[in-house]
Amino acid sequence: MRRPVPQAEVWAPGDFELAEGARWVDGRLVFVDILSGRLLELPAEAPRHARELLRLDMPLGAVAPVAGRPGHWIAAAGTGIALLAPDGKSDWLARPEEHSPVPTRMNDGVCDSRGRFWAGSMPYDGTPGAGSLYRTDVDGSVHRVLDGLTIVNGPAFSPDGSTLYLADSAAGVIYRCALDTEGNLTSRDEFARVGHGGSPDGMTVDTSGRLWVAIWGNGAVHCYDDSGALDATVRLPALQPTSVCLHPAGGRLLVTTARIGLCEPGIAGAVLTVPVDAAAPAACAYGQPPGT
């Protein structure tokens, strides 16, 4: 039986065009406004207005902290993967989408528990099969892990790091992939399919192994159990949720939203909060050795 979930409220107002990549880092919420190239933070207390940490002159899809270097980030930005200093200066590791047959940008990304950064790409015009998934190893090498996808979203990992969840938003499908210790995919299966006019976007896995997914275009967050069954639905007062983050202490789900393309956006572009009985670890850092 699907369990009822309390209603969402505005946690921090905002008019973000395409907020995404919500992560809990060092006691605060960090997220991006993709098309403006901004990295922002919100303190644990609310309501507050977001503070800009840095700004790029290109789309900024997602970031993860760099281990042992406060204020430094690894980022899926523009057409590739870069290390960012606090002033926004970029050290590019690779630009694998620079010469894509169609204009393409990097999108959502996250680190796994072994300190590797995973990020997807997407074509601006929605060309089918033009998106890919990349893995950046701790030595800075960037590898294409999957291709033939379209809008790659929401990399998320099971608590033990052996399972990768990935969405192709254009297809409405969430995949579950098994990984070996080197980060190679050993299998890929359809985990869930989203219908009713919505698309799976950003996601996270809670400490009990349930997958929480922002459903773009349907004003909802879905919670799936580890079999792929829909366990709960959170209804939202904004049509375009983009990413989700569970507070490490439990009790709070945070949701970024977007106002792009909406004639009457209302509160779209704000960060929402919902009281839930779930928690997830804070964001893993790039280069973090296992077990530390």
Rank of each mutant, 00 (worst) to 15 (best):
P4D: 12
E9K: 14
E9Q: 12
V10S: 12
W11G: 00
A12W: 13
F16N: 13
F16T: 03
L18Y: 03
A19Y: 10
E20I: 12
R23T: 09
D26P: 13
G27R: 11
R28I: 05
V30Q: 10
F31E: 03
V32F: 03
S36N: 04
S36W: 02
L39W: 03
A44S: 02
E45P: 05
A46Q: 15
A46I: 10
H49G: 12
E52K: 00
E52A: 13
E52M: 15
D57T: 07
P59T: 04
A64R: 11
A67C: 13
G68E: 10
G68R: 13
G68W: 03
R69L: 11
R69V: 04
G71T: 00
H72Y: 14
H72F: 06
W73R: 03
A76M: 09
T79K: 05
G80W: 14
A82W: 02
L84H: 14
A85N: 05
D87S: 01
K89H: 08
K89D: 15
S90H: 12
D91R: 06
W92F: 01
P96W: 04
H99L: 13
R105T: 04
D108N: 03
G109A: 11
G109S: 06
D112Y: 02
R114L: 15
A119K: 00
S121I: 04
M122T: 12
D125H: 11
G131Y: 11
L133E: 13
R135V: 06
V138N: 06
S141L: 10
V142W: 04
L146C: 11
D147M: 08
T150A: 11
T150V: 11
G154I: 08
P159W: 02
G161S: 08
Y165I: 09
Y165K: 11
L166A: 01
G172M: 00
G172S: 00
V173Q: 08
R176V: 07
D180I: 00
T181I: 08
T181V: 14
E182W: 12
E182T: 05
S187Y: 00
E190F: 02
F191M: 01
V194G: 02
G195P: 08
G195Y: 14
G197H: 03
G197M: 09
G198D: 05
D201C: 01
G202V: 04
G202L: 00
T204Q: 10
V205M: 03
D206R: 07
T207Y: 05
S208C: 07
G209R: 09
G209Q: 13
G209V: 09
L211N: 02
W212Q: 04
W212N: 00
A214D: 00
A214G: 04
I215V: 07
N218I: 00
G219M: 13
A220V: 08
H222V: 01
H222E: 06
C223K: 01
D226T: 06
A229L: 07
L230A: 14
L230M: 12
A232S: 00
A232T: 00
P237L: 01
A238M: 02
Q240W: 01
P241A: 02
S243F: 01
S243P: 11
C245M: 03
H247L: 04
P248N: 05
R252K: 12
T256G: 13
A258M: 11
R259K: 15
L262D: 14
P265M: 05
P265Q: 09
G269P: 12
A270Y: 09
A270T: 03
V274S: 15
D277T: 04
A280I: 01
A283Y: 03
A285V: 10
P289Q: 14
